[in-house]
Design a protein around this nucleic acid. Structure first.
Lengths: 336, 336
DNA sequence: TTGTAAGCGTTATCAT
DNA sequence: ATGATAACGCTTACAA
């Protein structure tokens, strides 16, 4: 191991020495405090320039108890909708002068707990958590360390301390399905992920099942892998037998897998096969036919989360529950 | 403003008091040092448990000059290929116990410089920079603060101190174009982005132009906005006039825009219109027809960058230049 | 094996 | 307006 990268940094002491003032004065200059003569300010600034001095965020954070860092926990950065949220968070965070410390968890509960641990020791000023694996008690652990938390897609009961951003899916989805059951005659299929579907998907599946049961209609749940090509292959087989159906898919990419497999089996869309993507992103409009979807503006979700967090950090009282409504966007893969 | 979230944390002192030992002993237990009786270790661990103590990463970092944080600079998290790289970085970083501090820059030179500034004050142990805006001198600024840097897609001459990951595009692209000019007869168009195309795209454009000039063939450069729908609209018009061409597009999404516009204007792909995507991601295979592309495994790029950085952090000598080759993947949008 | 104390680079509260 | 000096919470010689 090398000596570590932080050695040899120029410190406030050296600036003070060079400028011929005390370190307190340098600190005042850095932080734009009052009570510094223009003359000494100049002197100090010159010394700072010449030495190439940069204050240590570490030491500052230790002294002030503020890191100006926000911890963000996400499962994988690989999904488009997660990347969109991250983009919303980072853009907003930057406006407020916060940096983002990122913890990615790969869908394992164990890793999610580790992420919480690291987040706590890393001393972030606040946290945004978008991770299906975590339970209320896990989240409350962070809160116990006085760190304001905003949770996305995970309702926490203790609303005094935790901000929640939830997705308004149930109603829109239920109405959409009900409506379809009234006028359509295809059997509906719900695609879920074999391992770790996650809370959101489970909730939507429940909603799907209940609506069908209430209408006393047949349905089916299909287990898929979380991979485009495996889903594509599965449905290439599937459509050899089944020539008709309405497929509710969790994201654009599985929706595309079903769509491509159907088309290549000579099925017509939407006459034979109808498709809905539950977390619609910009790709739903790019695909052909364009995939009907429940559009969820994850960029907005990220911005909203960060805004809420900033308000909590500023001690403002604020509606700590915000529901982002999803919009049903009927495009080419459904008969509307 | 509230008092700040970091107050009220339990410190090593309180643990020491509760366990009836000195803080040095607690530190030893935390860091698994030798020379601690099993008995006192137990005592201390019990106290830690009971108090819910978590060491402050901040104080530790200040004392050891190591943050176990890696700074990552990217332009926007919104592109799929950037998200993929980020995923590769975060996964690998986690294996080595590093957290990621993320700086996103939105394509502005000014912001990129700010990001460098923040990265330096934030005291990261190392940095991975994927940002077209930054020049060698900007990067060297970080190096001056003894922070090991890996630069992606940006060759830095001073190779003693900076690791470089470059993309092996030129050769593959040039050969592909040459080959096409020999056998194909369509005029080739190169799509670039109006504002801030970035180094990579400029380089590829130069390559495109030179190959054409060498072959004494006609070509055209088309300026587009960095937005699917605007590009789609532009080409919907474009194809009213021009009914034939080979379009070299910078990413999958503009490729899809051209493709959709062409198809919807009654043009056949690839008979009338051929399309190539320069930074192919998994979406190239999902689209129909499947987009021929230069596949760049950005996940691997991220992993490689992080691996290289870790080796630099460990003081190992290492080939500090790695070229990730792109692979020409001929699919349905070109006549092969 | 354990404790003492100096140091990491700041901020902030006193004096002056 | 400026300068000492004590925190901030930890690590790490050095002493015991």
């Amino acid at each position: 191991m090398t000596d570590g990268p932080l050695k040899e940094r120029i410190t406030i002491y050296e600036v003070a020495a060079k400028a011929g003032v005390s370190l307190a004065t340098v600190s005042r200059v850095i932080n734009n405090h009052q009570n510094v003569t223009e003359k000494t300010r100049k002197k100090v600034q010159k010394a700072i320039e010449e030495l190439g001095y940069r204050p240590s965020g570490l030491a500052k954070a230790l002294a002030t108890s503020k890191t100006t860092n926000i911890g963000v926990i996400i499962p994988s950065a690989n999904y488009v909708f997660v990347a969109n949220m991250l983009n919303g968070i980072t853009k907003t965070a930057r406006e407020y002068g916060y940096a983002i410390t990122l913890f990615v968890t790969s869908h394992e509960k164990d890793e999610a707990l580790q992420a919480i641990d690291k987040l706590i020791t890393s001393h972030v000023d606040g946290a945004i958590i978008f991770d299906d694996e975590l339970e209320e008690e896990d989240v409350m652990q962070i809160v116990g360390y006085q760190v304001p938390v905003v949770v996305v897609n995970n309702r926490i009961e203790d609303e005094k301390k935790v901000g929640c951003i939830t997705f308004g899916y149930e109603h829109t989805l239920r109405e959409m399905i009900k409506d379809y059951l009234n006028r359509g005659d295809k059997k509906m299929y719900f695609l879920t992920i074999k391992d770790n579907p996650g809370r959101l998907l489970e909730r939507l599946q429940r909603s799907f099942v209940n609506t069908h049961k209430a209408a006393n209609r047949e349905y089916d749940i299909l287990l898929t892998e979380d991979s485009y090509s495996m889903t594509y292959e599965k449905f290439t087989d599937f459509f050899k037998e089944t020539r008709r159906g309405f497929f509710v898919c969790h994201r654009d990419s599985p929706a595309a897998a079903v769509m491509n497999a159907a088309k290549e089996n000579g099925l017509r869309i939407p006459e034979d096969v109808e498709i809905l993507s539950l977390i619609g992103t910009r790709y739903a409009k790019i695909l052909r036919p364009r995939v009907s979807n429940m559009f969820l503006n994850m960029n907005e979700v990220g911005e909203t989360a960060m805004n809420m967090l900033r308000d909590m950090l500023n001690g403002e009282t604020y509606p700590r529950r915000i529901k982002i409504e999803t919009e049903f966007v009927p495009l080419d893969t459904t008969i509307n």
